[in-house]
Design a protein around this nucleic acid. Sequence first.
DNA 1: CATACACAGTGTATGTCGTACGCAGATGAT
DNA 2: ATCATCTGCGTACGACATACACTGTGTATG
Lengths: 244, 244
Amino acid sequence: MDGTQDDLLPRGMALLWGIDERQRRGPRPALTIHDIGAAAVRIADEEGLAALSMSKVATTLGFTTMSLYRYVDSKDDLVLAMLNEAYGAPPAGGPRTQWRPWLIRWCEANRAALVRHPWILQIPMGEPPLTPNLTGWLEEGLTALHSTELSEQEKLSSLLLAEVYVRGQVQLMGAFDTPAAKQGEFGYAARMRRVLDPDRFPHLATALASGALEDDDGGEDEFRFGLEAVLAGIDRLIEKRVAG
Amino acid sequence: MDGTQDDLLPRGMALLWGIDERQRRGPRPALTIHDIGAAAVRIADEEGLAALSMSKVATTLGFTTMSLYRYVDSKDDLVLAMLNEAYGAPPAGGPRTQWRPWLIRWCEANRAALVRHPWILQIPMGEPPLTPNLTGWLEEGLTALHSTELSEQEKLSSLLLAEVYVRGQVQLMGAFDTPAAKQGEFGYAARMRRVLDPDRFPHLATALASGALEDDDGGEDEFRFGLEAVLAGIDRLIEKRVAG
DNA sequence: CATACACAGTGTATGTCGTACGCAGATGAT
DNA sequence: ATCATCTGCGTACGACATACACTGTGTATG
C-alpha cells in the first residue's frame, strides 16, 4: 500500500495541502511538490505549454521521468501544482471598509500573473482548481467584499465576474499585442483582415477599421476601462441590496 | 504543389471560409469540412474531449486517419472546425432599438451552446478562434449594440465582458451541478469540504456553509442574476458616454 | 480522343508521450 | 537485528499525431 492517498485528492494536491498520510519509514523524498511545480512553470514560461513533458521536467530537476510519479498522479495533477506555483500567494489586503480599491488590486494582481505566465490561459480547465494558493485568492476576494451588504452567493458571483473578465481581457490582448513581428504579416490581425468581408460583417469591419483593438500600450487602458464596467455591475448589485 | 494553401490560414479554416484555391482536376473530395467537424463534435459530446482522436473521427466517417489530413492541417485545425460546428449560426436578431433584450438573447444562446457541448470549455484557447460562425456571433453582438452611443472599442469590450461571463458561469456551474452522483461522495463539493479549513479560509467557509453554490436548478437563476450585473456594467458605460 | 497532371484516399513508419509495473537500495520503526 | 515501507529508476507498452510515398481517378489540355 502507498500512503498519501485517500482516493479523494490526487497525490500532488494532497502534498500541496500538507495532507500527507505517509508512513515515516524509508528514504526521505529528495524533492518537494513545490520544486516540481516551479521547474515545470519555468519550462512553460520559457518554451510554452506544448514543450512541457514529464521527461523534460524530470531532466531539468536531474531526476528520471518516473520519479515524478512519486509526487503527482498524472500530468493533470502536475498542472495543478503549476497553477499553484504560478499564482503564488494572493495580494496583500486593502482597507477594511473600501471594497473597490481592494478588488481593483486583486484584479491587477490576477492580471499580472496571467501576463507573467501566458500558458495559464491555454490549460484546459474543467473545474476551478482546488489548490491552496488559488483558494487563498478566492478567500482574499471574499474578504475584500466582506464589508458590503452582498449575500454570499452574490459575492461569489461578483468575484467570478471579475476573475473571468481578467482572463478574457488578457487572452484577447494576447492575441493582438504579442510580438509585433507576427502582427505585420502573419499575425492574428493579418488573418482577420484576410477573412473579414465588410459586406458580410459590416459592424465588425467598421470596428476594426476604427482602430479598435490596436492598443500599443499593452492594453493597460483598455483593461482599466473594462474593469470599470465590471465594478459598476457589482456596484449595482450592492445598490439593489441596500435599496431593497 | 497543393492548392488551398496560402500559408496564412490552415487548410481547415480556408475550407470553412470557402477560400479554396484547389485546381479543378482529380477526384472530387468525398467529405466536407463540415462533415468532419460534425463527426468530431458528436464524439466529443458523447465521449468527452479526451476520447477524441484523429483515428476515431476518421473511423466514424468510414475513412482512414490520414484522409482527414486532406481537410485539416492538424488536430488543432480540426478543433477550430469543431467549434464552428458546435456554435452554429448566431441567434436571430432582436429589435433594432433595444440592445438589452437582444444581448440577453445572445448570452442565453451562447450559454446554451456551452451547455450542449461542455467540452468547449476544455479546449485550450490561445487566441479567439477565427471561424465564420464565431465571427458571425461577434458581428451579431456588435449589431445588437449598434443603437448605443458606445465607441467601437467599448462595444467590443462589452461583448468580451458578456462572452467571458457566460463562459465562466457555465464552467463554475458545471463543476458543481454535473451528475449529482459524483457530488455526494467524490465530487467537487466533497473535495472542497476536504481541504477547506474554516480557520484558514473563514469567509469561504461561511459562504459554502450558507448554501451558496448549491443551486439545484442548473444555475439558471444564478446565471440571470449575474447577467444583470454585466448588463448594469454596460449600462454604466452607455450613461457615461451620453453624459460626457 | 489521347494524354498528362493534380488531387483523393491509403498504408506504412516514426518519434513522442504518458504511465503501468516491478526491482534494488535506503531508512527508520520494532 | 530485522523487516516493512518508501524512494528513485529501468523497462516496456499502448496511444497518438503526423510525415512520406504510392495508387488510382477524373478533369483539363493538346
